[in-house]
Write a protein that binds this DNA or RNA. Structure first.
Length: 272
DNA sequence: CAGGTCTCCTGCTAGC
DNA sequence: TGCTAGCAGGAGACCT
């Protein structure tokens, strides 16, 4: 599933190809991608808008158009592919962007979980972005901030790391890796973490995500940032999807348990 | 307000 | 071998 490093990888790739290009028209084949939005209006508004930039906020891609932001969340399996304008529409392609009458940018999503929002530039405060917490590299992400956010959280730290209203961009893979490097048991309640542990989370979040971006993301299951492009970070994972393997630090066996409904991998010996 | 549960989807897999 | 029930999972809606 695309988390921050994968989305960032996608953003960089899309920008190279799409910056300054114009969306002549879009075809929406699965309306629920634009949940709660008037499909006809979306089509009209986006017509002839130029892609001036592509930004990222958490796991959201933010296409900066002339008058709008097109927000795109890939959720589990969303991805963008390029095709010729008259190529047949393949299975799972739900949104087709005609770019400059030259080629077709297509949004493909097997599970149909991904979402898009077209919002006016001055109405970002009404968009899903408005509730997001801090980027991992934000200077405001410090011990004071985290203590305030965690002080009433009785949920396991594993679950709280996935909360996009506190720190953005962390998903199931990197949450496990951050906790391993921080030597924190994923079951531990967030409010019970001490200062040192919280500081470790802050430091290791940056470390883990930086490394993953450098590697072009993690390729597991069906994730690829674009067709034919795969990341290499799966080779750097210490615990995620390594149930039954030996911990690289203590040689104990890595276990898998459900926490907050999510598969969680950790080393019971290193992470007390 | 915090936390628990349900829901959206489809491909894959375990089990018969 | 072929079939099906159940699982996986980010985030918002809804309930307690």
């Amino acid at each position: 599933m695309p988390e921050l490093p994968e989305v960032e990888t996608v953003r960089r790739a899309l920008l190279l190809k799409l910056k300054g290009r114009t969306i002549k028209e879009i075809t929406i084949l699965y309306n629920n991608v634009f949940e709660n939005q008037d499909i006809q209006k979306v089509k009209e508004k986006i017509k002839n808008q130029t892609i001036n930039d592509i930004l990222r906020r958490g796991k959201w891609l933010e296409f900066v158009l002339d008058d709008y932001y097109l927000l795109s969340h890939l959720r589990m399996e969303g991805k963008y592919v390029y095709r010729k304008l008259d190529d047949i529409v393949e299975k799972h392609q739900h949104v087709l962007f005609n770019i400059d009458d030259e080629f077709s940018l297509r949004y493909r999503d097997v599970r149909k979980f991904g979402k898009m929002h077209l919002v006016k530039k001055d109405e970002l405060s009404k968009s899903p972005l408005s509730k997001l917490g801090l980027e991992p590299w934000d200077n405001n992400l410090d011990l004071v901030y985290l203590k305030e956010k965690y002080k009433k959280k009785t949920l396991p730290i594993k679950t709280v790391l996935l909360d996009q209203e506190i720190i953005v961009g962390i998903g199931n893979i990197y949450a496990d890796e951050i906790l391993f490097l921080s030597k924190i048991n994923p079951h531990k309640k967030a409010k019970e973490l001490n200062d040192k542990e919280m500081q470790s989370i802050i430091d290791n979040t940056k470390k883990v995500l930086d490394k993953a971006i450098e590697e072009g993301g993690t390729t597991i299951r069906s994730y690829t940032s674009e067709e034919g492009i795969t990341g290499n970070n799966q080779n750097n994972l210490y615990v995620h999807q390594r149930e039954g393997e030996k911990c690289q630090i203590c040689k104990n066996v890595i276990v898998r348990e459900k926490i907050g409904g999510r598969s969680t991998y950790y080393c019971p010996k290193c992470q007390k």
